[in-house]
Structure formats: structure tokens, C-alpha cells
Design a binder for these strands. Structure first.
Length: 467
RNA sequence: GGUCCGUUCGUCUAUCGGUUAGGACACCUGGUUUUCAACCAGGUAAGAGGGGUUCGACUCCCCUACGGACUGCCA
């Protein structure tokens, strides 16, 4: 007996950017499928023609791509499958698991308002459920599912456990609208079934929907997928994530300069855990990820931890990959592109820059000493180290650096000797040197500065200072 | 209102009836250091409240409080 292939999917509505919570949902689906040799599919739920836009679809694809979540096959447009949905609706009709309902929207609204006013649960029960087709009027109609009135529908959820819904709480939902377009409730089920989706991992705002969708599966005699309804992400204050919490869209995190690998790691750990694992590669995440590890309570976004995680990934990354992602960051934020010389400088200095930065803006800031052009304009705090005595010491140091072979050991020997000769502590030498070479007080070590800058630039900057 | 879900350090979480309740981030103290970051050592800090069940409950059950989702010819 072979294990059927795992198929997961991410199915966003194209009504805006890719929400950070949606990004995590996609990530969970991706991890689960990728870690098990399965497929991860992407479907755009664009049946709401009023709110769906191609721009939003493009933004979602960009967000997923940035996060590094690749999907299998073509992106499926739900809207384009509307004929298939209608076909299934009519099959339900033929099977007797659905019926035509001629009640007008106005009648239903009036009914609901009245029921609510009377303090009752406004469950609309269509009078057409068991009507004789011979009595059907010549009016527009919708197709409603003939949902079971008695008993209960049980969801076996991998995250929420067994959740039971009383069938008398659920109405006969509309599956095909009067304009013959499908509703979400029908479309998801048909699409998930046709696409062979085996595991539905989505936000727990869909938990109740799972009950109704189960009825559609049953009405069609199809296998119900494995459910996993994950809690939504909340803001730092524990409230539902909203604009006042700051960034909502995945692309905003890219624009803030967070590395994608770090975001994947952070988002994976947000609401999921495997023992004490904290920092891991995506490959490791794929093999560790499971549905059991998903928590049941909503998790809050913690920017500090996110930055810390990103910092680890910055340090772990390959130099060339970091430079590449840095350039992508510059591009999306509309910042000037790097020159070849700057790229060379960054590649040369990456080894001492990447473990000091958590984000790309920080990386750029740490690299400022290398990217700066002569003459260096020292910040006030740095300039304070450049008094006449210091300049004198730097001047004699300059002479000793003229002909030395440019490597760390030699530089170390010379600087140590210079400090001894001048009878000062190393700090008294390093601070002015740092000020002269970088114009700042916080930089990589003076050796690293000199190594990254190279002899010519180092001597030139010293010359500028001592002139 | 009804239905459903949730609640362990400030935050993310481990624990799956018996632990000095562990780890990570953040924070504090000390160390290291040419600055910053990093790093090392240590510290503060938690089972929402109340009832049960049990020899024993963070873990199982009930109630309360608080938070959330759903309750559309939206998805």
C-alpha cells in the first residue's frame, strides 16, 4: 500500500497585498508539502469580481516569491473554473443534495431582520427545500445545498482536535448564485477536490466553514481532506493584527530590509515549535515541520525576536547571496544601485559586516565606512579623537604602512608596535585611526577596516587626515 | 444574542498526570574587548480565577473571567 502524495495549497483572495498572516499560512503549507515530497499549489480565489484585482494577484505572487515559497504548476484562477463549479452544483441538484430556491434577497433580509428583532437565531430555512418542481415559478433562483437538518457534523482537525457542529445551527447555504456564479463555499470544495488537495491548512477563521464544506464533500461523495486550522497572528498587544500595528503586508517587511530566510525562520516558529529548535534553515524546517507542533492560541508578532532571528540568518548567509539580496532590497526601495566598485568592496568586507547586521539597512550602515568616498568627513564624536597628538602618531604610522605586505598579521604587528612606541594603550591608537579611516566611532575592527579598504585607500585616507 | 475556539515567564514556546516547570527573544548584572555588534557567565520572570476527578494536576472534567472566530447571493 503506497502513501498517497501530499498536496497542499494556498488560496488567497486577490483583494490587496499578501498579508503577513497569509504569508505564514502559505509557509506552513509549503513546509508541509516540501518536507514530504508533496506538492504545494497556488489558487487565486477571485470569484468576487467586485473586489478582485490583477494588481493584488501580482502583489501576492511577488510576496510569495520574495519569501521563497515556490509553488507547483500553474496558478489556478478560481474564477476561470466557474463553469465547472456550476456543473457540480447541477450534479448536486441531480443527486438530490441541492435544490432551487426562489426566495428573493429582500425576503431573506426581511426574515433575518425580523428574527433578530425577536431575539431568535436568524437561520433562514427555505420554503423551497422540499417543493415540488411542478410548482416552481418563472423567477431567478439560487441553488442551495440540502444540508442535513438533524445530527451533527464532526471536523477532525489536526490543530483544533475534534470539533462538533450541530447541524441545526447550519442553514442550507447557497452554492450557486442567481447569476449562476458559484459561491466560495462551493468553489473551494470543487477546486480542492479537482486539484487533489489532501491537506487543507488555513486560518482558523475558516473552522466553521469546514463543517459546511464537509457537507459539500459528502453531498458529492468525495473524500474529505485533512483539516488543519491554524490560529491567526495577532499584534504585539494581542489584538487582531491591524494597520495601527504597522506593517501588515509581506512586501513591507522586504522594504524594511529583513532577509527572507530570517523571516521564514521567524514565521515558522511563530505558532509552531519542535522542542527547543529556534534557528534553522528552510531545509531543516521542512524536515522538522509537522501539524502536531502547531499551537492552538494566536501568536503575537514580536519585532525584537524577528530581528534577532534575521540577524542569525544574515550571519549564516553566503556572501554572494547576501549581496544579491541586498541589491534586490535597494531595487524595491528605489535606492541607488551599487556600482561595480561598491559591489567589490562589499564582497571584500562581507565577512566582517554580515555578523553585525540584522537587516539590510543595518548592513549598509555598517558598510558605510567602505562605501564612503574621500575625503572622509568625521562625525563629531569621531573628530574628537583627532587632536594634534593623534595626528602625529597617525603620521608616523602612515610611514610604516607604506611598504608592508597587506595582511592581518603584519598590520597587527605594526599597530601594536606603534602603540608601544608612542607609549599609549591600543585603544588610544585605534580610536583616532578608526576616526581617520571611517569617520565614525562604531565600526568593524581597525584591521578589518584596513583590509577591506586596501593599502591605497587606507594610506590616502590617512593622508587626508594628517595633511 | 447563538455556535465554536483559545488562555504556561513581558513575548514565542517545551511539558503530552509525578520536573527545582526547560529553551529562545527582550530585560538586568558581571566578564571579555581597539569602538559597535557579537561572545561568555549569571540573574529577574509563568501555569487567568474558582470548583472537581486523582495518592498526585499546568496537563483530565465543569463553571467564571478575558480574548478570538463564525453567524452574507464576501472570501
Amino acid at each position: 500500500m503506497s502513501t498517497p502524495q501530499i498536496v497542499t495549497r494556498f488560496a488567497p483572495s486577490p483583494t490587496g497585498y499578501l498579508h503577513i498572516g497569509g504569508g505564514r499560512t502559505a509557509l506552513f503549507n509549503w513546509l508541509y508539502a516540501r518536507g514530504r515530497g508533496g506538492k504545494f499549489l497556488l489558487r487565486i480565489e477571485d470569484t468576487d469580481r467586485e473586489r478582485s484585482t490583477p494588481e493584488a494577484t501580482a502583489a501576492i505572487l511577488r510576496g510569495l516569491t520574495w519569501l521563497g515559497l515556490d509553488w507547483d504548476g500553474e496558478v489556478v484562477s478560481q474564477f476561470e473554473r466557474k463553469d465547472r463549479h456550476a456543473e457540480v452544483a447541477h450534479q448536486m441538484l441531480a443527486r438530490g443534495t441541492a435544490y432551487k430556491c426562489f426566495a428573493s434577497k429582500e425576503d431573506i433580509d426581511a426574515f433575518r431582520t425580523a428574527e433578530e428583532a425577536a431575539g431568535r437565531y436568524p437561520l433562514f430555512l427555505s420554503p423551497w427545500r422540499d417543493a415540488d418542481p411542478a410548482t416552481y415559478p418563472d423567477l431567478p433562483y439560487v441553488i442551495r445545498m440540502k444540508a442535513p437538518r438533524l445530527g451533527e457534523t464532526v471536523i477532525e482537525d489536526k490543530v483544533q482536535g475534534k470539533v462538533t457542529f450541530q447541524n441545526d445551527q447550519l442553514d442550507d447555504m447557497i452554492v450557486l448564485r442567481s447569476d449562476l456564479t458559484p459561491t466560495y463555499m462551493l468553489a473551494v470544495v470543487v477546486d480542492d477536490h479537482d486539484m487533489g488537495v489532501t491537506h487543507v491548512i488555513r486560518g482558523d477563521d475558516h473552522l466553521a466553514n469546514a463543517a459546511r464544506q464537509t457537507m459539500v464533500y459528502q453531498a458529492m461523495g468525495w473524500d474529505v481532506p485533512v483539516w488543519a486550522h491554524i490560529p491567526l497572528i495577532h499584534g504585539p498587544d494581542g489584538k487582531k493584527l491591524s494597520k495601527r500595528h504597522g506593517a501588515l503586508g509581506v512586501e513591507e517587511y522586504q522594504a524594511m530590509g529583513y532577509p527572507a530566510a530570517g523571516m521564514r525562520n521567524y514565521l515558522t516558529r511563530l505558532g509552531w515549535a519542535k522542542g527547543d529548535a529556534e534557528i534553522f534553515t528552510s531545509h531543516e524546517a521542512q524536515s522538522m515541520f509537522d501539524l502536531d507542533g502547531i499551537g492552538r492560541a494566536p501568536a503575537r508578532l514580536d519585532f525584537k525576536k524577528m530581528e534577532n532571528t534575521c540577524g542569525h540568518h544574515m550571519a549564516m548567509a553566503q556572501d554572494a547571496a547576501l549581496l544579491h539580496e541586498l541589491q534586490a532590497y535597494l531595487a524595491v526601495t528605489g535606492k541607488p544601485v551599487l556600482t561595480q566598485a561598491q559591489r567589490d568592496l562589499l564582497m571584500r568586507g562581507m565577512y566582517c559586516l554580515k555578523d553585525r547586521a540584522k537587516t539590510f539597512p543595518e548592513l549598509l550602515d555598517k558598510a558605510a565606512f567602505a562605501l564612503a568616498s574621500r575625503p572622509i568627513q568625521p562625525e563629531a564624536a569621531a573628530a574628537a579623537f583627532l587632536d594634534d597628538v593623534s595626528r602625529g602618531i597617525l603620521q608616523s604610522l602612515t610611514l610604516q604602512l607604506q611598504n608592508v605586505t597587506w595582511n592581518k598579521d603584519n598590520l597587527e604587528a605594526i599597530l601594536t608596535k606603534a602603540a608601544t612606541t608612542a607609549d599609549i594603550g591600543f585603544g588610544k591608537l585605534a580610536s583616532p585611526l578608526r576616526a581617520a579611516l571611517a569617520g565614525r566611532t562604531a565600526t568593524p575592527s581597525v584591521y578589518d577596516i584596513m583590509l577591506v579598504l586596501g593599502r591605497d585607500e587606507t594610506l590616502a585616507r590617512l593622508g587626508d587626515t594628517c595633511r
